[in-house]
């Protein structure tokens, strides 16, 4: 009977183009862009748009890793904290005269190790990922402050090729983000490792019984989330030119989680798309930018961002319910 019931649904899905699954989200995004274009002169200028994209690049890299991890039923709340530590350590290494490449490699390695520690705790102790990584998040925020001793550490223009450089008019930060998103999208769709993530998120017991090495995959996923946090940390440092108290941390984390969830990735695992995450990241970035351009009081800005979040989440759900 179930098959009979769902037949028309399945046919409808096939007829519509891919990506229509995010139609509600796309609609909200388009509405805001149109509104912004009408109300401000500067929003649709190339400069402003590129600036928005440059700004969301860091969140996009974190959100990409988080999408894959959450699809596998995991969660890492410490990616923002990891970014804070990475930027702090990298800034101090620059300040102590270390070379660029050594610093970058060391920072990303450190971030990967932090991710792996999360992975070990979650995989082998059975502590809920949310709890474990919330604890490490707090811990890492403290460590970051310790590393820079609560002061701003400038790196001058050592990473400016990455931070403000462009190729063919595209900011380098944006190019890095696009590559990361593309790789994660490829992994999720075309590799067994990516499909294993769906299987583990869908039903971990079944995945294990089917011969998937669930523990290994989880460690890899948390390690990958850590590595991408490290990369995001370097990108953030390149963009800001300094590591200060409050760089990265929970605020950045919440933005990334919001973007991923808005994009339709299930908190319970088993579902997720990079395309949705991209739309979520763009939506949040565009809203922040538009509110700035309209010179709205920053208190109202926060209220508006929250409201948009809620609307997008509801639009997403209504969309899915119709299917």
């Amino acid at each position: 009977m179930t098959t009979t019931l769902t037949a028309p649904v399945a046919t409808r899905r096939r007829v519509l183009p891919r990506g229509f699954a995010h139609g509600g989200l796309l609609l909200v995004l388009v509405a805001i862009v149109v509104f912004a274009g009408l109300r401000t002169d500067s929003f649709l200028s190339t400069n402003n748009l590129l600036n928005v994209l440059r700004q969301v690049s860091v969140v996009a890299v974190i959100a990409a890793g988080l999408t894959l991890l959450m699809t596998a039923g995991g969660m890492d709340f410490s990616m923002g904290g990891n970014v804070a530590v990475t930027t702090a350590v990298a800034a101090q290494m620059f300040a102590h005269g270390q070379s660029i490449w050594l610093t970058i490699v060391a920072a990303i390695l450190l971030a990967t190790v932090i991710g792996l520690v999360n992975g070990v705790v979650v995989t082998f102790t059975g502590v809920a990922p949310f709890v474990a990584t919330l604890a490490t998040a707090t811990l890492l925020d403290g460590v970051a402050l310790l590393v820079i001793n609560g002061l701003s550490v400038s790196i001058d223009d050592q990473l400016s090729p990455l931070g403000i450089g462009k190729t063919f008019g595209l900011p380098h930060l944006l190019i890095v983000a696009i590559v990361v998103l593309a790789v994660i999208a490829f992994v999720m769709r075309y590799t067994t490792f990516g499909r294993d993530a769906f299987a583990i998120g869908g039903n971990e017991d079944v995945a294990r019984l089917s011969g998937i090495n669930v523990s290994r995959d989880k460690l890899l996923l948390y390690g990958l989330a850590g590595a991408l946090s490290g990369l995001a940390g370097i990108m953030l440092l390149a963009r800001l030119g300094a590591s200060s108290p409050g760089t990265g941390g929970l605020q950045l984390q919440l933005t990334a989680v919001a973007a991923v969830v808005i994009g339709g990735t299930s908190l319970a695992g088993g579902k997720g798309t990079v395309l949705g995450t991209v739309l979520g990241v763009l939506l949040l970035g565009v809203v922040a930018n538009v509110l700035n351009l309209l010179q709205i009081n920053s208190y109202y800005q926060q209220i508006s961002v929250g409201a948009v979040l809620l609307i997008a989440a509801i639009a997403n759900l209504l969309q899915r319910r119709r299917h």
């Binding site: 075309y190 067994t192 499909r195 769906f198 039903n203 079944v206 998937i212």
Partner: peptide, 27 residues
Amino acid sequence: RLGLIPELTVDENLMLARDRLDRRRLH
């Protein structure tokens, strides 16, 4: 509870064990 992953497609469920036993990398 222990047999199938409902969100995955029929084909993926059919090959869930087989492809892993074959150590297949790409999908």
